[in-house]
Computed example of a mutant assay.
Amino acid sequence: MQRYLSRAEFAERIGVLTGTLSRYKLPEPDAMIGSTRGWTAETIDAWNAARPGKDAGAGRGPSA
């Protein structure tokens, strides 16, 4: 059986609050059950690794 993750599980997997997802252009869902979207872990991980702005500001030193 294939396992699909909900919006809440999507948010948890990428380390943000569920409400934060509305700021992002999420990938197309892998499954729809009625109006409920579901994604595979692989889809979420690939999207998260490629999303623009991820780790923005990483490696910056203190402001001068």
Rank of each mutant, 00 (worst) to 15 (best):
A50G: 03
T40P: 04
P29Y: 07
R23I: 06
A56L: 10
L17W: 11
T18W: 00
P27K: 03
T20M: 11
I33D: 07
A41E: 14
G15E: 10
S35E: 08
R37G: 02
I33S: 10
L26D: 06
S63R: 12
R23L: 13
G34P: 02
Y4G: 03
E12A: 15
G59M: 08
R37Y: 03
I44W: 01
I44D: 02
M32I: 02
P62S: 10
A46S: 13
A41F: 04
S63I: 07
R60P: 01
M32E: 08
F10D: 11
Y4W: 09
V16E: 03
K25Y: 04
A41I: 08
A49E: 15
G19A: 10
A8W: 04
P27V: 02
G57W: 03
M1Y: 12
Y4E: 02
V16R: 11
E42Y: 06
G38V: 00
R13K: 07
G61C: 05
E42V: 05
P62N: 04
R7P: 13
R37M: 05
T18D: 12
E9A: 15
A49F: 10
M32K: 12
T43N: 06
I14Y: 11
D45S: 13
R13W: 00
M1N: 14
A58T: 11
W39K: 08
R37W: 04
Y24K: 01
S63F: 00
R13T: 10
A46D: 11
Y24Q: 05
F10C: 06
T18M: 02
D45P: 03
A56W: 08
L17M: 10
A64L: 06
M32Q: 07
Y24I: 03
R51A: 01
I44P: 01
A64H: 07
L21V: 13
Y4V: 07
P52A: 12
A56F: 09
D45Q: 09
N48C: 09
G59H: 09
R3V: 14
K25F: 02
M32W: 14
